[in-house]
């Protein structure tokens, strides 16, 4: 992948004119791109069918048991046409978003669920098919990460990036929406690495393990599974929190794509080729 490398000098004028003479580099390898899209699709289907499954019993508990007459820590409900979210006893009105929306008294409204109208059985079919897609693709990608060196080369934070000072600097840059330019944009930045590592090594494994604890058959064969999370109702709560984590990741991820230049970023995740943003003038 030969890349012509332009020198870092840059004027502070229009970015469009400059973009053409910035170097185009091959940044995203094929396995990463394939996994990104398979994973993106399965996460979306899992979130949307998962919200329909949640609609069947829109309450979460901690402990070994939890049903209607016990004490949920989270409830999404409705009183007539008023929807509400209650977390640890604090109630927030959510009419139009949660509890009651689109003239439907579901915790999550038809617009965001699969299927759109109430069907626990239908949602389970979608959820379990894509659970396999997620599990198999994540396993293969994890093997690729280790075998190819992608994990150590591109995702792991180096010694310098691990320093508090460096991270704090990166946080300030993100807060000012100053994204890496020039040579620095060849690699992922530290916060980006942390976000990706968090998805790969925390959210995906925990969501799969807590998902498995929803199975009474697996819980019988592997009792440590549900116990590791403090019981099936606790595991269900953690499963839901992981889903919320995925949703938060997607929001931040898409926002970052929009701010960093959506077309360039899209080209990079589809074709692999990425145009390095021009070096900023100090």
């Amino acid at each position: 992948m030969a890349t012509k490398f332009a020198d870092g000098e840059a004027g502070g004028t229009t970015t469009n004119a400059q973009a053409d003479d910035s170097p185009l580099i091959y940044r995203t390898k094929l396995p990463v791109r394939i996994w990104h899209w398979i994973n993106a699709w399965s996460i979306f289907v899992m979130l949307m069918s998962g919200m329909m499954i949640f609609n069947a019993h829109p309450q979460l508990y901690w402990g070994q048991y939890g049903a209607n007459l016990d004490h949920p820590w989270l409830v999404i409900g409705n009183r007539g046409t008023s929807g509400f979210l209650s977390v640890a006893g604090i109630e927030i009105p959510t009419t139009g978003f949660l509890g009651y929306a689109q003239n439907t008294a579901n915790a999550f409204p038809p617009l965001v669920t699969i299927p759109s109208s109430y069907s626990l059985a239908g949602a389970r079919q979608w959820h379990f098919f894509f659970a396999w897609v997620l599990l198999i693709s994540a396993t293969l990608f994890m093997i690729y990460n280790i075998v190819s060196g992608h994990l150590w080369r591109d995702l792991a934070l180096n010694r310098e990036e691990r320093s508090i000072r460096h991270l704090w600097h990166d946080i300030k840059d993100h807060a000012r929406l100053r994204f890496p330019t020039g040579d620095a944009a060849r690699a992922y930045n530290p916060l980006q690495k942390i976000a990706y590592l968090g998805v790969l090594f925390v959210l995906i494994p925990v969501v799969i393990l807590t998902g498995c604890t929803m199975s009474p058959t697996l819980n019988a064969a592997f009792p440590w599974l549900a116990e590791m999370f403090g019981g099936r109702p606790s595991a269900r709560s953690i499963h839901f929190l992981c889903a919320a984590g995925f949703a938060a990741f997607i929001v931040v991820h898409l926002l970052a794509v929009l701010l960093a230049g959506p077309l360039n970023e899209l080209r990079s995740i589809i074709t692999g080729w990425y145009r390095l943003p021009k070096e900023r003038v100090k």
């Binding site: 079919q125 379990f128 098919f129 396999w132 697996l218 819980n219 019988a220 064969a221």
Partner: peptide, 23 residues
């Protein structure tokens, strides 16, 4: 989609001890 259901049934029978007791 029903392939997922079949895979789940098959995999659960495959990886679990058939006499494992529920807690």
């Amino acid at each position: 989609l029903s392939l997922g259901e079949k895979a789940t049934h098959g995999a659960q029978r495959l990886v679990t001890d058939r006499n494992a007791l529920a807690r």
